[in-house]
Amino acid sequence: MGYKIGLDLGSTAIKMVLVKNNEITWSRKVPTAPGQEALAMELVKGAVNECGLSEVDIDHIAATGYGKKLMSSAGHTVDEISANAQGLHWLSEGRCRTIINIGGQDLKVINLNEKGLIADFKMNDKCAAGTGRFFEQAARILDTPLEKFGEMSKLADEPLELNSTCVVFAESEIVSLLAKGVPKERIIKGLHHSVARRITHLLGSRNTPKGGDIYLDGGPSQNPGLLEALEDELLMEVKVLPNPQFTVAFGATLSAN
């Protein structure tokens, strides 16, 4: 008894957390595919089985993300911006004032007040530039696993100036650079910096935090090369919590309170 489930049905992955007493006891993600509710319920079943629980132990299911309305079994739904705010406020023990979330197809900057409530937020328009999808596309063209992006970018001295963060235009730019013999390491470092600049623009001078900490979350936040580029562009320290791709799902369970 006393377990809650948080489901974040995102554009590229479905993330699930099992929570007891506001602590994550189990988490997993699967790629988004047609039949999102069935995929999510498979995750729930997996958690229940692996943790030796039965369905009656689950008090509540909270859903968030673009697919939240597909979850007919959810006890409640919450938008992912509010869920992200609540999740990071709790996990950072109230220190977070700005969240930079990089999702599969969007970028969000969320400012929190000292109570963890949303003071303001910005989100990219309908363009996947600088999002998780952008990195996936780049990894494919560079024929390099995303997990290696961090270490490879550290090997480059100077980032290459990339003109585009557009998923489509960056492809031809990267292909052309590879054809010219530019090392992949420099290109990857350049990618990190171009995304970091885009985030900095979204953050804007008026939204630069005046106190508290700044956190990066979402799948791409596990890339240390991106984190380094972001700190370099923002001229500020940026923190990343363990398992940053589950913050939103966790926040959804908190919103059930």
Binding site: Y66, D79, E80, I81, S82, D106, N113, K115, L117, I118, A119, D120, F121, M123, D125, K126
Partner: peptide
């Protein structure tokens, strides 16, 4: 873009209570 707009509006509504 309806879904992303809705996400923003829902979050915005929550900020109005803050």
């Amino acid at each position: 873009d309806s879904q992303t707009l809705l996400t923003r509006l829902e979050a915005y509504r929550n900020t109005l209570a803050n």
